[in-house]
Amino acid sequence: MKNEAVKIIKAKKKYILEQWFQNQLENDGLREDLITNEDQRIQSEELINSFAASISDTNFDNFQSRDFEKIEDILSGVAISRAKRGFTPRETGAYVLSLKMALLKTLSEEIKDPVVLYTESMRINSLLDNFSMITFETFIKGREDVILRQTDEITEISTPVIKVWDGILALPIIGTLDSSRTQIVMENLLQEIVETGSSIAILDISGVPAIDTLVAQHLIKTVSATRLMGAECIISGIRPEIAQTVVHLGIDLSDVITKATLASALKTAFGMIELEVRKKATSKVL
């Protein structure tokens, strides 16, 4: 026996679209500030068309069927674009749920036998529920993408490598230094050493709130990697509290050149590349 519901959906898709669109309007799901009426209509029509095209007797009960991939794509696309545009979850969820209402309404108008109506409605229900779960999952994924991108941006911003002199780089570290951050610091620093041909890197930790064995280990790793590149590394900005913790924790920094301030680190660096800073007025030689 041919499935009633499938037949109806295929035959009545225009009517369903009208119903659905009506529902969307009533649900306040239409945010004209975020999406135009016209766009929303095109989106909805595309979805209905591919839904009507892909649904068949065989896949009706199986939402995982490959036939629905196109619909899943459209739904994911809609959900992601909505997440990024700033729709609320309710508004996004209502999009699919209002389609369900439209489908159920159409079925109830077309099918007269209550038993058939009930079974078909249940099936439509479970299929559409699965679709709305997809929407929700992708909606959250879209939001997570936004968060991830921001995280990336923050890490990018917070590890600048500054060329302070020909052959001298400075890297002010602000915030805690965990292993993924160290990775980024090292990559940026070593890359910059190659690009600028620098021979000295100053790691300023004035902005690091606290130091523990792990952070110290990360610092030592960075120093070792810098040396492997053929550059020397100076750690500056050692505050008294940090000096105290370093000693109390028994961290060995004796292999590393450490300075209290960035200024004295720079002075040391000048010395290492045999430069001298002099006051102009006093040098009357020239």
């Binding site: 990775q183 090292m186 990559e187 070593l190 890359q191 050493i193 190659v194 790793k221 070792s224 990697a225 810098t226 040396r227 492997l228 590149m229 053929g230």
Partner: peptide
């Protein structure tokens, strides 16, 4: 030495 190689050596425990 390439930066990626330097980082890997340090991570490996071979500075």
């Amino acid at each position: 030495m390439q930066p990626a190689v330097a980082i890997t050596l340090v991570e490996l425990g071979l500075p």
